[in-house]
Simulated assay, not measured.
Amino acid sequence: MWYELGDLISYAKVKRARDLDLPVLSMTSKNGIMLQNNRFKKDIASKDRSNYKVVRRGQFVFGFPMDEGVMYSQKIVDEGILSPAYDVCDVKKSIIDPNYLEAYLHGPRALTFIKEKLRGTTARRRVVPKDQLGTFTLDIPSLGDQSKRLNRLSLMQLLLENKKQLLVLLDELVQSRFIEMFGDTNNSMEWPIANVESIAKVKVGLVIKPTRFYSSSPTRYKAIRGLNISPFCINDTNWVYFTEDGAKSNKKTEVKENDVVVVRSGAPGTAAVVTKEYAGSNAIDVLIVEPDLTQIDPTYLCAYTNFPHGLKQISKGSGGAAQKHFNVEKYKNLTIFIPPLEKQKLFSIEKKEIDKSKLAIQKSIDELETLKKKLMQEYFG
């Protein structure tokens, strides 16, 4: 049955915190309503919080920016206090579960409606006027069907979170295995030590006015920037492209398969191995490291750079107050353990097997995300 939102909620008679000792709550678009940490409690202890609003379990809170989904049911504590800037509503629970309302208002049709009716320009002012918000229409099934739908979505979200946690654990496994095979940052296994410049050629990508070589539309000449580099992998997003003439005039800063590219600015030391897919791309303001494959394995060098073994040294060599910047000479002088090449390659093989598992998990996550979007579309239009 169809209802207007104004028929399902009513703005609550505000009860102020005054001298009540209740949990302090906050709300964000990503995490919803949550308990503030102890540090925040201490920060506001000296402030007047008597005007904070008391929010009961099951009440609904509208915040800002509303178009980013800052609107949630309070399901954390029986009673808590929240900034007086937020609107608190009672929900007609005989018709709609507050959690179902929360899911509905984060659905595609509701968010489109909110964006169309939005007023205000700054984040703290982007809200929909109450009289406009109340006109949004919702197709509400029975409470039993609402519960079933919420259970499906909840199970799907739990699956997604578990799979994402698996990815984190696999990343931790790679670092744990590296330390097990090669020791800690203090070289507890007493490997021979060398400077990077003795086992690799190091240069910097194009720095001076690279934009003059840019193409206004995508070409086959991609250019790798710091934005394209994550630990161990190149991100296939945020590309800039060179024109054909631009690519031909910058052959010296092209990357090859098995080169290691290292971020210089922003997150200095973040490193990835160039795969066959990205060989021939250019590089802008990142380090290009060409390892001597008779001495050093690219994956080992990449891991050493990404892990504390290299990052501790890089952080000492990074300057700049606002944005850290890493000098090419500092990387050349980076000290690195040189285990037997066979052992390095064994780590590389194990890393590739872990990557296969991560790829399968990521594919499963993508499929679940697609299914979740389909269900959200089906349930909430």
Rank of each mutant, 00 (worst) to 15 (best):
T370D: 15
I349F: 14
S215Q: 10
A110D: 11
G269V: 03
K332F: 04
A283M: 10
Y11W: 00
W2T: 14
K148P: 08
P339C: 08
G205D: 01
D19I: 10
V88D: 06
V202Q: 05
K47V: 11
G80C: 03
R126V: 06
H309W: 12
T370V: 10
E68H: 13
T185G: 06
G317N: 14
K352N: 13
L359A: 11
Y379C: 13
G269D: 10
Y214F: 15
S50H: 03
V273D: 15
G317K: 14
A247W: 05
Y86H: 05
G58M: 04
E353H: 14
L375G: 10
A200I: 08
D245F: 03
R119D: 06
I193Q: 01
N195Y: 03
S364N: 01
D21M: 04
A322E: 05
C233F: 04
R177A: 10
R57A: 00
K256N: 13
A283Y: 12
K209D: 11
L170S: 05
T112P: 06
K92L: 07
V263I: 11
E180S: 10
L111I: 12
T253L: 02
I81C: 06
S46R: 12
I81N: 01
E68D: 11
F337D: 11
D67Y: 13
G183L: 10
Q165P: 01
S315N: 10
G226P: 04
D48Y: 00
Y104N: 09
M376W: 10
I336V: 15
H106V: 13
K373L: 14
D236L: 06
Q295I: 05
I9G: 08
Y331N: 07
E254P: 01
P98R: 04
L8P: 03
E329V: 07
Y11E: 02
S29M: 14
S315D: 15
E378C: 13
K363R: 05
M189Q: 14
L5K: 02
